[in-house]
Design a protein around this nucleic acid. Sequence first.
DNA 1: AAAGAAATAT
DNA 2: TATATTTCTT
Length: 298
Amino acid sequence: MDYPPMAVTFDHGGVPASDGGGDPFGDQHPNFSDVFPRNFPESLRVLVFDEDPAYLLILERHLQAFRYRVTTCNEESEAMTLLRDHRNMFDIAMIHANNSDGDRIRFISEIGSEMDISFIIISKDDSVESVVKWMSTTTACDYLIKPIRPEDLRMIFKHVVKKFLGRRRSVVTVEGDQEKAAAREKSSSVGDSTIRSPDDDQAGKRSSCPNAEVVNEEDHDHDRVTSKKRRRVVWDTELHQRFLDAVNSVGFEKAVPKKILEQMNVENLSRENVASHLQVTFLLVYTTHIIIMFNNNK
DNA sequence: AAAGAAATAT
DNA sequence: TATATTTCTT
């Protein structure tokens, strides 16, 4: 209900409004350089292919200005070879779209579906037909129209972030071909789920106490804080800050739930709670870090 | 046992 | 919708 005074420890230049999604921590940013190792990837590897050497040079310079690691190429066969033989060499591939040949579009659609690279089409053709054709036929994630403004190049990393985020929710499982249509009789094991017995279950220790009747104590929660029931943890700013401090002090590399929990020293907080929070926070921090990192280079 | 990812629930 | 919790895998 009441927010503690914010202590802004990290001044970023503003998060892109486009699709960066909001601020994970409100106005309270952790110091990312403390959270992440120093050798965090400084740039993304981008392959740029265009027949025009002069334009290629322009793109290269702009991309380098944004700290991308650029490899240029003005020969189609070379570009294809690079992509095919070194599938782990690039994060992004910017390919010039040449309408006069279908080979290129075929190549990209083929290789694009089996590689983990974000393809970006560059073309001077701004017609709807062309855009639709390339975007629907290939796995390209963007289509930039020449002349390309530097602004359009600055943020191309967002596609990598998107892919990163997207892959953690693919439920597909396309193994078989046609089967599995009705193979769902795994069935409902009745019951258990929602019930969740409130009692202490069989901890083993004291199950047999013939007499004893200390039934005791605080069955009624006269004070909610010590209630034995698992309350839903609310990660308010204060608790979250405590979490961040713990991560920083234990060192990002070694920050595992157990250690973080110890360091936090908060009552009624379980390792699972911390693990869960770490899971989501890591994702947010990671992507935000990437965005900020590139933003700072503009 | 516990970390991590994914699924599920609120 | 967001995120907290539970389940499942390693």
